[in-house]
Amino acid sequence: MRIVEFDRIKEAVCAMCGQAACDLPDDVLEALKNARQKEHSELGREFFDQYLQNSEIARKERLPLCQDTGFAVFFIKMGSEVMIDHGTVSEAVNAGVREGYKKFFLRKSIVADPLFERKNTFDNTPAVIHLEQVPGDKLHITLAPKGGGSENMSALRMLKPSEGRQGVVDFVVNAVTSAGGNPCPPTIVGVGIGGTMEYAAYMAKKALLRKAGEHSSDDRYAQLEAEILEKINASGVGPQGLGGEITALAVNIEFHPCHLASMPVAVNLNCHTARHAEVEL
């Protein structure tokens, strides 16, 4: 067994909160620069220039890229030989979020009750934590802060298997284009196909973590990604929904075995400020 200290997890998470909020990952930056070259709309290009300027200011002045510093969503791979000296991984992560959102002046965006009081918890907890056990003695933590504007444009449908490939294309393209400017396009489109209802949604979110420019390792799904991306970008929604060629930067599909009666499809969008940070302890 290998002991990982509670405080070490907490401190790592705290640092990641600041890093994720202020430093746009290089792959996203590169994708934005490439997309700007392809954008013909004059206004669209102005928006791309502002995105790039924004990322420079955020990095240099340590200001969050976006005021919506998000729901703190974690994907954690915990080695089966890892033990924490006290408490649980969830407690350590929440302690790190509480400290990080305060220390780096990030917005606290979580309300305690979704329907009635909607009172802010004022420390951005609780985080959403997806925990997976893997072989080995390492603890791998990925933080993907998720803004509300893009999250609100999510979609899920239990398609009939007979609707097939075309059914998936139509559903995803429609979800993205009908979202218009709300999710801050150009977006990264996460798609989960298969599994159960909640597992499809989980895959759609997980798909957002893929590095920009990487495609599905399965050729059939990689082709599907390309076709959906082309159709989305032919819609003319454009940057900020104000017209142009580039509505999405990437379409990332994850898939999973499913019930013989079902074909769940979930869509989760990430704004152009596609933030994530990771650490291995």
Partner: peptide, 11 residues
């Protein structure tokens, strides 16, 4: 329309 996702620039 202000530029969504350009919060540091706008600040």
């Amino acid at each position: 329309a202000a530029t969504g996702g350009a919060g540091a620039l706008i600040a």
